[in-house]
Design a protein around this nucleic acid. Structure first.
Length: 272
DNA sequence: ATGTCGTGGACGCCACGA
């Protein structure tokens, strides 16, 4: 059973909700139970005018959103401060126009990014080239953020499984997006900046974060780890626990993604 | 193993994205 963080920790989480409106009852229930200090959301699929700010505020969360309606959409919820919000990033490519795929905010001493990488569709699709360009531009933006010396957490749906261990059957993914060498190199480029791909505990089964709705994939354990938390070295050293909340993928009207929850020692976060 | 979801247009069903 999910429970609030132990005292003395900052709880940071990320969740691709696959429509914030469709998921709002599940989200409100989850927030009350897990009580993250900061939550990054992806695929909110809601324009900013329709963002459920009031409902979230009732649970003590300030929110910042970047949404366009039916597709994409990212947001950050925080109960530990939400300052210096930026939407998108310098050099971010579009398809062809810029999309709502990145938002950042300073939540207390941590610079938090909620990102939703392009899917890619197929290796031959123009969307795949766009995905690689987008991830490369993200790395350049992350390099700039790290140069400020601030604590940095890049959280979200990267739509890449970093290694073969991150998919249920590598043989099934030959020739598919999410596992190709260029996509994995794009993640490697982010890690080479000094970021750590945090490995969360699985509460049951393999540590996957996404299971297709179709063909009973969740119940068969056929998932992928594509929702990542990339932390700078100081934050990574302060991690007390990290897990995938698989229970959130169960039950009535779940998202096809499970949240990743990370507890960081507050003393680590506070020292500069 | 493309079998399920979610959205939105234009209407109860289809196109699209994932």
């Amino acid at each position: 059973m999910a429970a609030p963080a132990v005292p003395g920790t900052l709880r940071l989480a990320t969740w691709n909700v696959n429509s914030l409106r469709a998921r709002l009852p599940r989200l409100l229930e989850w927030l009350a139970q897990v009580q993250p200090d900061v939550l990054c959301l992806q695929e909110t699929k809601v324009a900013d005018a329709g963002f459920p700010q009031a409902e979230l505020e009732q649970l003590g969360y300030a929110s910042a959103a970047a949404g366009e309606g039916a597709y994409n959409g990212v947001a950050i919820l925080s109960r530990v401060g939400l300052e210096d919000v930026t939407r998108g990033f310098a050099g971010e490519p579009g398809f062809p126009a810029p999309e709502s795929r990145a938002i950042a905010a300073s939540c207390g001493p941590v610079r938090v990014w909620s990102i939703y990488a392009p899917n890619g569709r197929t290796l031959e699709d123009p969307h795949y080239a766009y995905k690689l360009q987008w991830l490369a531009a993200l790395a350049e933006a992350a390099r700039g953020e790290l140069a400020t010396g601030a604590r940095l957490a890049l959280c979200g749906d990267f739509n890449v499984a970093p290694s073969d261990e991150d998919v249920w059957d590598p043989a099934q993914f030959i020739g598919s997006t999410h596992v190709s060498a260029p996509e994995r190199e794009a993640i490697r480029a982010l890690l080479d900046l000094g970021l750590t791909d945090l490995q969360p505990r699985a509460l049951k089964g393999a540590p996957f974060t996404y299971w297709d709705y179709r063909a009973g994939m969740f119940h068969k354990g056929c998932g992928m780890r594509i929702d990542l938390v990339l932390l700078d070295a100081a934050l990574a050293a302060g991690v007390r626990d990290a897990y995938i909340d698989r229970d959130a993928r169960k039950g009535s009207k779940p998202s096809d993604h499970a949240p990743v929850v990370v507890d960081v020692r507050a003393a680590t976060v506070a020292s500069t």
